[in-house]
Structures are given as structure tokens and as C-alpha cells.
Design a protein around this nucleic acid. Structure first.
Length: 390
DNA sequence: CGGCTTTGACCGGCGC
DNA sequence: GCGCCGGTCAAAGCCG
């Protein structure tokens, strides 16, 4: 697996350091090597009570620390000048930060698109090799597209050559044989599988589900339950819930199909974030080493895989590493896995995506739940988008 | 009474 | 062709 994404994103903090170095507001020395050192300076020199500066709230603490400095024996004018200097520097840095974030957004977007295009091009150029890599996908009929940060996973074998509205796609989902007869191509539905630790029989994901069956699956002592989405009439989305045979604390939820209705707010909010995750997952694998799965380059390699070993192309998210691998070395650089504590002041991502995910990871115990619903929606929107584009 | 779960029957795909 | 298996159906029962 290549580490280009890792290198790309993990380089961000390094790039940021020289900028942050200029933001040593509290040190008498104009050059502090890092925000961490900045904190030490602050605690050691200006606050005998070990005033700690949270990296995210540096601005707030800056005000407090500056106000807390009482040096009556010193002349007031140099301090005022210093404050004004700090203020102007802060404004300059904010502007610079804005520019950097804009540039980063653009670069990230371009990079993701290029990765996707390269992957598709490689598939077409070397179908035999790629067939070995994605044995379950009909390479010539599978496509991955990214638009506006949203990923579209589609298998053109599922739909006719002429344009078809989402409803038609959904209809075919319920009658796979018809699609197979029409195109003489095996029908494959994309799926999203989420592994999460839960003692509950099922994780609530904001949608309403109705159980319509339960079976004992081979090789697993735990029954597999079948659910159908009942949030809207005729919604074809289904999910299977089963405990992991090896670890009964792990609940495996597999989603299939496209919602034909708006998602609940929690799922909708997370949909954008997980679409980014899926984008990274799909775009990071131009040279997979595993023949059965396309592992996400860099950040998602430890928790998400795109498996095409059939019969269904399946994205699997492993959320059983609890807590989430926020402290894993190669995840630190990914926007998806930024925690607030690790975000330097000027490197907070501009989109609400990062805010939402970071907050969810850090504080929301239902993160997994929301994530599940969101991923489910991604597959739906992706297929719909591709169907509409064709 | 409507919606949901339960559970055995049924169906189609697939491998031998 | 047969049996296995996964997935779905639908009748019966439960529950608020």
C-alpha cells in the first residue's frame, strides 16, 4: 500500500510548524520552536500556577494569560506595544491560515480526483491485472466517481445503458434477475459493512427498521437478522445484523440498497463526513497488495477496506478498535481523524466535516450509530448519482 | 387495531 | 439432478 496520502496529509503539521513558530505570543524570545514549547514557555514564565494552554483554545488563553500578567514594576508601554504587535500578528496569521486552508482544500480535492482517475485508467489499461485485484468487480463496468467531495460507487452492470432514474435502480435491486437477464451480467449490489462493539441486539442508526426474517448462517452460532427500512414506503434499503462468530461483542451490520427518502438529521450530518472517508478509501488504492481487498491508502487502512472479492463490492468499516485509532501514528494526519487536542491553532480544517467528525469522535457515544446511517446513505447517493450521470 | 416480531416455508443460486 | 445455503415471504402471535 502506498503511503502517498499519509505523506501528503501528515506533512501538514510539519508545514505548519514554521507558521506557528511565529506565534509565540508569550515568549520573550521571538522564536519558539513549536506550540508545545510555547506552552512550556507560558507555564514556566508567565504563570506560576501552571496555566495550561489548550492548543485549540490558545486564543482564549492568550487573552487570559496576557491579562493575568502583572508586572507593575515594568513599564506599561512596551507591553502595550507587544500586545498590539501580537494582535496584528494574529490577524496576519488568521489571514494566512485562511489562505492555506483554501489551498489545502483545493489540493486535497484535486488529489482525490486524480487518484480516482488514475485508478480507473489503470483498470482500463490493464484489465487482467486489475481483475486479479478486484476479482469481484466487473472492471469494465465498475466506476468510481468523486464529485464535490462525494464518492459514487457504482457498478454499471446493475443498470441498463440508457439513463435510469434512481427509482429504476431501486426496482432492479428488488429484482436482480431481471437485470441479469437484460444484460447477461451477474448482478452485484454494493454493500457497506460496519463492525462495531455493541451489547445491544441492534444499533440504532436514526432510521426505522422492520425485521422480516432471521436465519442461522453457516459458520456462525449467532443468528443473522434481516431488517427492512420502513422510514418511507417502498424504501428498498435492507440491512443484516449479526454478531461476529469470533467475538460476540462485535456487531456486524451490513447495509444494502439506496434510501429513497431524506435521512434523519444525525445521519445526514454524518453523511458528508463519511463520504470523505469513502473517498479516501477508494482513492487511496492504485496499487493494492491484497488481491481480495482494496485497502484504503494511509489513514483508513487499519479500519476500512473496500472488498471486491464478491459477490458484492463491500466497504467494510471496522470500528471495533475502541477508542478509535486517534492516536495511531498514521491516522494523525488525516482530517477525518483530527482530534481537537491534536489540532494546532492555525490548522483546523475549514469544513464543518472535520468539526463534526472530530466532535463526534471525541464526545458522541453514538458516533458509530450515526456513522452507520451515513455510510448507508453514501452508497445510495453514489449509485443514484452515477445512475443519473449515465 | 395497527405495527412489529417470530418462525417455518418457500425460492433461487451455486457447487458437486 | 440434488442438496446446501442465503435471502425473502407470510401467517400467526405479541404488544402498546
Amino acid at each position: 500500500m502506498d503511503n502517498r496520502e499519509f505523506t501528503f496529509f501528515s506533512s501538514l503539521p510539519h508545514h505548519s510548524h514554521p507558521r506557528i513558530k511565529e506565534m509565540d505570543f508569550f515568549s520573550n524570545s521571538p522564536s519558539s520552536p513549536s506550540p508545545r514549547n510555547q506552552q512550556h514557555h507560558d507555564a514556566d514564565q508567565t504563570s506560576p500556577t501552571h496555566l495550561t494552554l489548550h492548543p485549540v483554545n490558545t486564543g482564549l488563553n492568550l487573552t487570559c494569560a496576557a491579562a493575568g500578567i502583572s508586572k507593575p514594576q515594568n513599564d506599561e508601554n512596551p507591553e502595550t506595544d507587544q500586545l498590539s504587535l501580537v494582535g496584528s500578528e494574529l490577524r496576519r496569521l488568521q489571514e494566512e491560515n485562511h489562505n492555506l486552508r483554501t489551498a489545502l482544500e483545493q489540493i486535497t480535492k484535486s488529489y482525490t480526483q486524480l487518484q480516482t482517475q488514475l485508478f480507473i485508467a489503470l483498470q482500463k489499461e490493464n484489465p487482467h491485472q486489475m481483475n486479479g485485484m478486484v476479482s469481484g468487480l466487473d472492471v469494465n463496468d465498475a466506476s468510481v466517481s468523486v464529485s464535490d467531495g462525494e464518492v459514487s460507487i457504482s457498478n454499471n452492470a446493475e443498470r441498463p445503458q440508457n439513463a435510469a432514474p434512481p427509482e429504476d435502480v431501486l426496482d432492479r435491486s428488488s429484482s436482480p434477475k431481471a437485470a441479469e437477464q437484460d444484460h447477461n451480467i451477474p448482478f452485484r449490489k454494493p454493500r457497506v459493512s460496519v463492525r462495531a462493539r455493541s451489547q445491544a441486539p441492534v444499533i440504532s442508526d436514526g432510521c426505522q427498521w422492520r425485521k422480516y426474517g432471521q436465519k442461522m448462517a453457516k459458520g456462525n452460532p449467532y443468528p443473522r437478522a434481516y431488517y427492512r427500512c420502513t422510514m418511507a414506503v417502498g424504501c428498498p434499503v435492507r440491512k443484516q445484523v449479526q454478531r461476529c462468530a469470533e467475538d460476540n461483542t462485535v456487531l456486524i451490520t451490513t447495509y444494502e440498497g439506496n434510501h429513497n427518502h431524506p435521512l434523519p438529521p444525525p445521519a445526514t450530518a454524518m453523511a458528508n463526513t463519511t463520504s470523505a472517508a469513502a473517498t479516501m478509501l477508494l482513492s487511496g488504492s492504485t496499487s493494492p497488495t491484497n488481491k481480495e481487498s482494496l485497502s484504503a491508502g494511509g489513514y483508513f487502512s487499519s479500519m476500512a477496506t473496500l472488498s471486491a472479492s464478491a459477490p458484492f463490492p463491500t466497504i467494510t468499516l471496522d470500528l471495533t478498535q475502541s477508542p478509535l485509532p486517534l492516536h495511531g501514528s498514521h491516522l494523525l494526519g488525516h482530517p477525518f481523524f483530527f482530534s481537537h487536542k491534536q489540532l494546532p491553532l492555525v490548522q483546523r480544517q475549514p469544513s464543518c466535516m472535520v468539526e463534526t467528525v472530530s466532535a463526534a469522535i471525541a464526545s458522541d457515544p453514538n458516533f458509530t450509530t450515526a456513522l452507520v446511517a451515513a455510510i448507508s446513505s453514501i452508497i445510495g447517493r453514489g449509485t443514484d448519482a452515477t445512475a443519473n450521470n449515465s
